[in-house]
Design a protein around this nucleic acid. Structure first.
Lengths: 253, 253
DNA sequence: ATCGGTGTTTGACCTGGATCAAGTAAATAA
DNA sequence: TTATTTACTTGATCCAGGTCAAACACCGAT
């Protein structure tokens, strides 16, 4: 035996039960026994690195993926190189739900930074959901939540101006980080300005200009990927403020 | 006994088994026996009329709804009167899936014309999905399909210009009507220009101008609610054409 | 340290579609 | 029937944000 042997992935069995994400992730609301059954089907592969794919658009659907650490972007590639970024996914968030219907992935997913990802083979999961009603219900809830989130995005893209979009993005990110025990007002972006713009339906230049403007207005400090929100209240006011004052942007109604 | 008694809702028992929508709707892929079990929990209320609500945003979630005949719009009301139309629903389409997560409706649904609606109490449905694996799978598929549709809409709102949006709307509507055995190129719109614009993130005026332009270009004939698509191929070319030629609208990438 | 290459910022300009303003036609009420 | 409201169309104008261009800063590779 090597006396220098250090703690490794092999010796620490990472299980759902010990996972800090248990309250955000699939096991939410399951009994310890049911969590254990779920745990048995989860595959924990070695960490992926920036740019690695979880899956590509068009591939056969086999598994759902959950971010354990790091972050992932999903995007719909449209032929000749163009793409629409669909989401940025933080620890505890499930990826691949949109593939169930067609049995093929309709978007691609790649990690934005070194990330640990849990893989959940879907056919195994369906065996469990059949006999664990609370897990089935949790799956329904997660699928429904995804729909609700998409609804929010439709509203953002359909009715909000550039300023409101970026503010919404930042406030939403801040809240999600906070829920994961991280600082809500001091964080590093793992995605580029370009990806943010793509996600929000804006040109890179617009995103850049808005960051500058928000900084000039004292709402935040930004230095490359490093963002510090200085006035979250003001950002939140932008998010649901402009709607309060007299309904500009008549696209809406 | 009244000799004049005519065929009524009471005498013709409408059941899923006889429903022409069986291949589009929840029973898709179920055995006749399972369809019968599903049928037992479906409530068929009397027809609703233009403007009637299926449910309102904020209400407790109890049931899913399926359009049997007619059409329904869903929309997210945002405080002071504004709204974002989320979708127009045709026969066989399920409404209310977004409410599962929060156990409250996050959007409102009202019928656009006289419509028959099937109501499916969700707690009863969950009892069935637990013991009918194919029904559970079908529910997962339907939820996933909704996510996929929202993804398409995000792409539409994030990356397409006004012309592409209206063309996409018309082509999509045409296909959905065709799948229901109706004419794909001669139909009546059950929604107003205003609602179309709201749905597509455009001003009413823009929608109106585009209809006029499409008509001038010979793509369609339009007379108020009555639309005849004259050149579906050209419309489809617009839908996935502009993307092919050199990636304008750099918002995308 | 130097050299690309890529991501970001900033300025100048332009345009698609929103907004504003009438006018017209259909639907509903009286 | 006529009055009133609501939906739709069309024209004129404006502007948020896209596009183009250039400079700059960082990062990995030689």
């Amino acid at each position: 035996m090597n006396p220098q042997k250090v703690i490794s992935f092999e010796t620490i069995r990472v299980v759902c039960k010990n996972c800090t994400l248990a309250t955000l992730c699939l096991p939410m609301g399951l009994t310890p026994e049911d969590t254990e059954r779920l745990d048995k089907i989860v595959k924990r592969n070695r960490p992926l690195h920036r740019g690695d794919y979880l899956f590509r658009s068009g591939e056969r659907f086999r598994s759902l993926y959950v971010v354990k650490t790091g972050s992932v972007k999903t995007y719909a590639p449209s032929e000749e190189g163009g793409e629409q970024v669909l989401g940025f996914h933080l620890p505890g968030e499930i990826i691949g739900l949109d593939a169930i219907e067609k049995d093929h992935h309709i978007c691609s997913a790649r990690v934005l930074e070194t990330s640990a990802i849990c893989e959940i083979p879907f056919n195994r999961l369906e065996e469990l959901t059949c006999c664990i009603p609370s897990l089935q219900h949790q799956m329904f809830r997660l699928l429904s939540k995804e729909i609700g989130h998409d609804t929010d995005m439709l509203l953002l893209l359909g009715k909000r101006n550039a300023e409101e979009r970026l503010a919404t993005f930042l406030v939403s990110l801040s809240r999600r980080l906070q829920r994961r025990g991280l600082s809500p007002n001091d964080f590093y972006l793992s995605m580029s300005r370009h990806e943010i713009g793509n996600y929000l339906g804006l040109a890179v230049e617009t995103v850049s200009r808005l960051f500058t403007r928000f900084q000039d207005e004292g709402l935040l400090e930004v230095d490359r990927k490093h963002v510090q929100l200085k006035d979250l209240a003001a950002l939140e006011a932008i998010v649901n403020g402009s709607q309060a004052e007299g309904d500009h942007q008549r696209r809406s109604s």
